[in-house]
C-alpha cells in the first residue's frame, strides 16, 4: 500500500452543501431530530395525502421566509429581528392560505385551520433564527428546501402509517381489502402519538447503527474498501 491510500480520508467528508441537505432530510430533521412542529404533525396526518399537502405548504412558506430573512439579515437591527421574522412568516402563510383556498379548494377545506397555524410552527422561525439570519441566501434556500422536504417526509410517513393501520388504505387506495378490521385508534389523536413513538424508536435505532458503523470505520480504517 502506498502512502496516498493510507492518508486518504476513509469516507469522504461531505461538503457544506451536502451537509445542509443531509441535516435537513435526516440528521437534523425537524420532526425526527428536533421534535418541532408537532401540532401539524399530529393534527393533520390522518391520511398520507393530508400529510403530503400540509408538508408542501410548510415547505413553500419555509423557502420564502428563509430566502427573505437571509437577504435582509444585514439591514434588520438585532433587537427587532424576531418581530420582523414573524411578520414575514405570517405574510407568506397568509399568501399560501389564500392561494390554496383559491386553487385547491377541496384540500383547503380538509386542512382548514392548520394552514394558518403554520405561522406558529417552530420549525420556520427556528430556521430563520438559527440558519437564515447567519448564512447566505443561496445556502438558506437550500436549507429551507432540505428542512421542508424532511418535514414533508416525516408527515407523509406518519400519514401513511396511520392511514394504513386505521383505514387499510394508502393515498386513498385500498391495500388491505374489505376484511381488514380498521384500527380506528390510529385515526384518532392517541394513535398519532403511538405511531410517532414507534417511528421515532425506529429512527433512533437506525441512527445508532449509523453511529456504530462510523466508529467501526474510524477504528479499523484499512478494512474498508473505497
Amino acid at each position: 500500500m502506498n502512502e496516498a491510500t493510507l492518508s486518504a480520508p476513509i469516507a469522504k467528508e461531505p461538503s457544506a452543501q451536502q451537509r445542509i441537505i443531509l441535516d435537513g432530510l435526516w440528521f437534523n430533521n425537524a420532526i425526527f431530530a428536533q421534535l418541532l412542529g408537532m401540532c401539524p404533525l399530529l393534527g393533520v396526518t390522518t391520511s398520507a395525502e393530508n400529510g403530503l399537502w400540509m408538508g408542501l405548504a410548510t415547505l413553500l412558506v419555509l423557502i420564502a421566509s428563509n430566502g427573505v430573512v437571509s437577504s435582509i439579515r444585514h439591514i434588520v437591527p438585532k433587537q427587532v429581528r424576531i418581530p420582523v421574522y414573524i411578520t414575514i412568516i405570517a405574510a407568506f402563510v397568509t399568501i399560501v392560505d389564500l392561494a390554496m383556498n383559491a386553487w385547491m379548494h377541496g384540500m383547503h377545506q380538509v386542512l382548514g385551520l392548520f394552514i394558518p397555524l403554520i405561522v406558529v410552527n417552530c420549525t420556520i422561525l427556528g430556521r430563520a433564527e438559527a440558519f437564515a439570519s447567519k448564512n447566505s441566501a443561496a445556502d438558506s434556500l437550500l436549507d429551507a428546501l432540505a428542512m421542508g422536504s424532511g418535514f414533508t417526509l416525516a408527515l407523509v410517513i406518519l400519514g401513511t402509517v396511520r392511514e394504513l393501520l386505521g383505514q387499510g388504505m394508502i393515498f386513498g387506495t385500498v391495500v388491505f381489502g374489505a376484511d381488514y378490521p380498521n384500527m380506528l385508534m390510529f385515526i384518532l389523536p392517541p394513535g398519532a402519538f403511538i405511531a410517532l413513538g414507534f417511528i421515532l424508536a425506529i429512527v433512533n435505532k437506525i441512527n445508532q447503527g449509523l453511529e456504530a458503523a462510523k466508529k467501526e470505520q474510524r477504528q479499523h480504517p484499512r478494512e474498508v474498501t473505497l
Partner: peptide
Amino acid sequence: QMVMALFIVGLLTTFLLALTD
C-alpha cells in the same frame, strides 16, 4: 433604525397581502 425596519417590513408585507387578495 428599529422603527424604520419594522415600519418598512410592515408596509411591504401589507402591500404583498393586498396584492395576493
